[in-house]
Design a protein around this nucleic acid. Structure first.
Length: 295
DNA sequence: AACTCGGGGAC
DNA sequence: GTCCCAGAGTT
């Protein structure tokens, strides 16, 4: 229940749930609907289904809750964190937990500046937790670390004045405790397909020029269909990828013909093309056309 | 490595 | 509104 859910939110559900399903056998005997009903309001309902499945699996195989990390970890809905929590708290085995609290506390104590969403930073934090773990009282140690994060080492306003380990905290010493942990979510990548038009005339190519006041001001580029409403589209001449910050374009090149001469465009000869600023997408296009486009 | 899955409390 | 919560499973 505590997976991604605050203790305070869980408590009433926890009490009700245990009253209704006091042991593994009763939970296993219940229908999934009953379990979901008791869970409804808590969210992440896959947790309930997994717990129910785990109970049934345990009961089918003897009814004894597994007491070894790898067997616990193999149960549905139990990942690294929960397996370590059960193994250490219930069975006194030396497995370090790494939850959101531990990530915050240790990233500050170590002044871990890497993105804690990344695998390398996660590995460093996990190794630190394993190193620090009190092997005689792993359950108490794990819970103490999580409790420190939940009550003192708070996300936005860490209460360093009342922190028992402040003197060992590197982030505190550096004055960056409020900047940690770094949880940078990479910007969402947007994918799109664009078409660039290749309009030729007497060995020259039709280009448009980017307007004043925008990005890439004054740069030249091939027109798009929207620029030339009257154009008749011809055969496809090529295709390539192009990336601009968080966008990933698939750019298709098509030949086109015009009846009316557009005013805001320019005909550029190959020599002239070499002498003007050009967007990278258009340069890639011209490189690709080099084989097919002869003056 | 990124996504999805819920709902709530703190700010 | 934004962040984050005692994460796990899937793609």
């Amino acid at each position: 229940m505590l997976q991604q859910t605050r203790v305070a939110a869980v408590l009433p559900y926890y009490r009700r749930f245990l009253r209704r399903f006091p042991n593994l056998k009763r939970l296993a005997a219940a229908s999934e609907d009953e379990v979901l009903q008791a869970w409804s309001g808590l969210g992440y309902y896959q947790r309930a289904r997994n717990m129910h499945r785990a109970a049934r699996r345990i009961v089918e195989s003897g009814g004894r809750f597994p007491n070894e990390y790898s067997a616990i970890r193999a149960l549905p809905g139990i990942g690294d964190y929960t397996a370590a929590a059960i193994a250490s708290i219930a069975f006194g085995q030396p497995y370090a937990v790494v939850d959101g609290n531990v990530i915050r506390v240790l990233s500050r104590i170590l002044a871990e500046r890497g993105n804690v969403r990344s695998a390398p930073a996660r590995t460093r934090l996990r190794k630190a937790a394993e190193h620090l773990l009190d092997r005689d009282r792993p359950g108490d140690f794990n819970q103490a670390l999580m409790e420190l994060g939940a009550t003192v080492c708070l996300p936005r306003t860490p209460q360093c004045a009342g922190c028992p380990v402040a003197k060992w905290c590197r982030a505190r010493r550096l004055g960056i405790e409020r900047q940690l942990p770094v949880r940078r979510r990479p910007p969402r990548i947007e994918k799109a397909t664009r078409t660039l038009l290749v309009v030729q005339r007497n060995g020259a190519l039709l280009l448009k020029r980017r307007p004043v006041g925008g990005q890439l001001e004054g740069f030249f580029e091939l027109p798009e269909p929207a620029d030339l409403p009257g154009a008749r589209l011809g055969p496809k001449l090529g295709e390539f990828r192009h990336a601009i910050t968080r966008r990933r374009y698939r750019i298709r090149l098509r030949a086109a013909e015009l009846d009316l001469l557009p005013s805001e465009f320019l005909w550029l000869s190959p020599d002239q093309l070499n002498a003007v600023p050009m967007t990278t997408a258009t340069r890639k296009a011209l490189n690709q056309l080099a084989g097919t486009w002869k003056r």
